[in-house]
Design a protein around this nucleic acid. Structure first.
Lengths: 159, 159
DNA sequence: TGGGTCTTTATGGGCGTCAATGGAATCGAG
DNA sequence: CTCGATTCCATTGACGCCCATAAAGACCCA
C-alpha cells in the first residue's frame, strides 16, 4: 500500500508559499529513501514530475536507450536532467515551490498532487481537471482497443 | 468459496459516512492480502471498481504495455493511477467513501456492493437496479443469439 | 421440531491522534 | 542589522481506533 503513488490531492499554499505534500505520498517517499524531492518539468505538459530514486531510475533508463551522442539523448537529458531541481522537505512535510515551477504550471495558491505509481505530478488544479478529462477520453479509446483483445480495465468482468 | 466476490448487498452509511463492507467480501479481501481497499471509477458506469492485488494488477498490466514518458502512458496513468484511491478499512470492516466516489456514483446514504469475481463494484442502489435491468435485457439477447447459434465453435462478443 | 442461546454482523458514538495549516522564533548570508 | 529561509510550536478539524448495542442467523439440545 505504501509503495506506489495513487489518487490525487489538492492543498493550499500558505502565505510563505509552502504547501504540504499529501501524507500518503510522504509515506511512499520515506520508503524510497531519497533525500528531498526530485522534480522536473513534465514533457509537453504544464506540470512537474516529482519523486525520489524510483523516478531518477526511470530517467536514467530512458536515457540509456539512446546513444549519449545522439540528438535525442541531448534533448532528453536537457529536459529531464538540466531543468530538474531537488526541493527541500521541511519537518512538517512541506515544500516551497520555485518560481520556475510556478511559472511552468500556472500555480498561484492551490496545488494538485497526482499519483502516477512510481512518481507523482504537480498541477494547477483547473489545468489538471482539463487534462484529466482528456485522459479519460483517451482511456476510452484504448479500452475499446484492448477489449477486443480480451483485457479490460473497468468494464466487463471476466472469470 | 472465499476467493471470489459474488452476490450483492446493500448497506447504509452512518452519520460519519462510514459503511460496512459485506462480510463475505471482507473474507475475499483478507485472502487477497492487500492493505486497504483499492478502488477506481468505472469508466463508463456510475460505479466504482474495488478490490485488492488482483484489481491493482489489471492496471499495472495495462500500463506495462506502454513506455514511461510516452504520451499514452501519461494519459492512461492519469486516468487510472490518478483517480484510484486506497481506502482504509477500520477494525469493524468499514470504509469511508471519498467525495469523488460519492459524486461519481450518486451515493447519498445507501450503498450497494456487487460481486464481480476478482473485483466488486460500488453502486448507488437505484442506479444499480436500473443497470441490472438493462443487463438482464441484454442477457436475453445474448441467450437468443446463443440458441440460434446451435453448436458452432468460436466466441460470443463481449459487452 | 421448537425453543433457547451463542456468535456474527451491521451500526452508533466517544475520544485520542495525526494531518494540514498558520504563525512565531531562530538562523544565516550579505 | 535586515531579509529571506528554515525550524519550531499552536490550532483545528478530520480520521482511526476502541467499545457498546441491536438484530439476524447459526447452533445446540431436549
Amino acid at each position: 500500500m505504501t509503495d506506489r503513488f495513487v489518487s490525487n490531492f489538492t492543498n493550499r499554499l500558505d502565505a510563505k508559499g509552502r504547501v504540504s505534500i499529501p501524507s500518503s505520498f510522504r509515506a511512499v517517499l520515506a520508503k524510497d529513501g531519497y533525500e528531498g524531492l526530485y522534480v522536473h518539468p513534465a514533457l509537453d505538459l504544464a506540470a512537474f514530475d516529482a519523486g525520489g530514486h524510483a523516478l531518477r531510475k526511470t530517467i536514467d533508463d530512458i536515457l540509456a536507450r539512446f546513444s549519449p551522442f545522439s540528438e535525442e539523448w541531448e534533448s532528453l537529458s536537457t529536459a529531464l536532467n538540466g531543468t530538474s531541481e531537488v526541493l527541500k522537505i521541511d519537518p512538517e512535510g512541506r515544500i516551497m515551490l520555485s518560481e520556475a515551477l510556478k511559472a511552468h504550471t500556472g500555480i498561484v495558491d492551490t496545488v494538485t498532487f497526482v499519483g502516477h505509481g512510481h512518481k507523482f505530478q504537480i498541477w494547477e488544479p483547473q489545468r489538471f481537471q482539463a487534462h484529466l478529462d482528456a485522459a479519460k477520453a483517451k482511456l476510452r479509446d484504448v479500452k475499446r482497443a484492448l477489449s477486443s483483445q480480451a483485457l479490460s480495465p473497468g468494464g466487463v468482468a471476466g472469470a
